[in-house]
Amino acid sequence: MRSAVQIADARANKPGHQIYAGRARAIIERASIALRSSTWVPIATGFIEPVLYLLAFGYGMGTLIGDISTSAGSIDYTVFIAPGLLATSAMNGAIYDSTWNVFFKLNESKLYQGMLATPLGPLDVALGEIIWALFRGLSYSIAFMLITAPLGLVPSWSALLAIPAAVLIAFGFASFGMAITSYFKTYQQMGLIQIVLLPMFLFSGSLYPISVYPDWLEFTIKLLPTWHGIELIRDIWFGVIDFSSFSHLIYFLVMIVLGLFFTTRRLRDLFMR
């Protein structure tokens, strides 16, 4: 049985021991205990939203649209929007935990202050919270896959690779979401996240190809994470993996690293200044 001091001493010579105690799992354990007693309504709504879009646009509007021509050939409209909505599921899940929940813990319950009074470092807290948020993104995308597969919207087995890709997307969004939230102080600022997210989803090619835009707008959209997420899942879905697919992967890796960096730095500045 090792004491708290022995555990901390054992870590002391590792690089970065001041910001990372190697125990992000303790934060994940805390979240899983808290989940048992949380309400399921907001969790369900986050998942249902993309499903509603699938029904309304795919089976409603879609009947008026018919087929749509893409780089993967001419495909049914409902099949076209399904991967975009799966990407949206992953993002929704990741954002839910990494923004509002984090805001509450930072400003209302002072939870992180308590955690950082222990040998845990800011990177333990950031990584633990972000990985937890990513789990929700993962479960949303699995659930979405389970709904779309029986409907004949999943073209091949290789489309299952969309799930690990969704994890990457969720990781990126959770990481960035927590970083941004950590700089916000008021509910009004938090409202901005919602205002930005909806148009980002609507106009990033989830419901129609962005080739309909003028060049400048198309270029702008291509800078947004929503577009990269939707395109990545769509590439995998239809099996058209090329250089651009890798650029999407790299986009999310950068997002993850930047988000973790800024979250860690902000937590340190807030609670260990």
């Binding site: 555990i7 303790a26 354990e29």
Partner: peptide, 26 residues
């Protein structure tokens, strides 16, 4: 701390338990 920063989402027992886990204790 001056102001309690207990984990309001958890019970009394869970608060004690998880705090020990933050220290890496078994």
């Amino acid at each position: 701390p001056q102001q309690d920063n207990l984990d309001t989402e958890l019970t009394v027992t869970e608060n004690l338990y998880i705090y020990g886990r933050y220290f890496g204790l078994s």
